[in-house]
């Protein structure tokens, strides 16, 4: 494999990464070839010593996914981190997917319920005084506000739980991956 071929395959494997990260990684490997050439090593020798570019790309991508999840806990970063790690084959997808699917479904359900509760509480709070709820205006205001608070609290707790769970999956996969990967390679 030539230098260009290696870098090309690596770059293809890294599609989807933020441009700045991609540039940094490509610069790392280009510098590696340059340093090796200065020592008089041939391109094909260096490419062979570096290993399979697709495999390296998967590993780098998973690492980048974990990094963006560390920096910002957004749903898309959580997805990127987990998809990247699944790409490594570190977790048994067949076992994990139904489990993950169930958990994700439950979490989405709770979130939906919390949002629904919040809106319902808001409606009672806003419309209560005009519709003549049993217990009078004050009870409607208080009750509506209470339901809103409760829903917000449930939402916040579920969010904290979700973040904790994604961290757990990432931690487990990285630990697992280090042990498993060599066995897959040989």
């Amino acid at each position: 494999m030539t230098r260009i071929e290696f870098l090309d395959r690596l770059c293809k494997g890294l599609t989807g990464l933020p441009p700045a990260t991609l540039k940094e990684i490509m610069a790392d490997y280009e510098a590696h070839f340059k340093d090796a050439a200065a020592e008089g090593r041939s391109e094909s020798e260096v490419a062979a010593a570096l290993g399979d570019p697709e495999r390296l790309a998967r590993e780098l991508k998973a690492e980048a996914g974990v990094k963006s999840w560390d920096e910002a806990k957004t749903p898309s970063n959580a997805t990127a981190a987990i998809v990247g790690i699944l790409g490594l084959g570190a977790l048994d997808i067949l076992i994990l997917l139904p489990l993950l699917g169930g958990v994700v479904g439950t979490l989405i359900g709770i979130f939906a319920a919390a949002i629904g509760g919040f809106i319902a509480g808001g409606v009672v709070f806003a419309a209560g005084p005009f519709l003549g709820f049993p217990g009078g205006i004050f009870a409607a205001l208080l009750g509506g506000f209470g339901v809103m608070l409760l829903s917000a609290a449930v939402g916040a707790i579920t969010l904290a739980l979700t973040i904790w769970m994604v961290n757990g999956v990432v931690w487990f996969a990285r630990l697992h991956y280090r042990v498993l990967k060599p066995a897959l390679e040989s």
């Binding site: 790392d28 290993g51 780098l60 690492e63």
Partner: peptide, 24 residues
């Protein structure tokens, strides 16, 4: 990175490619 990689591949026979994901 290149120096670390060649150092370690001489010392413990480690593949050079693994150094970059590890450093990141």
């Amino acid at each position: 990175a290149y120096e670390i990689a060649s150092h370690l591949s001489d010392a413990i026979g480690m593949g050079e490619g693994t150094i970059y994901p590890l450093m990141r």
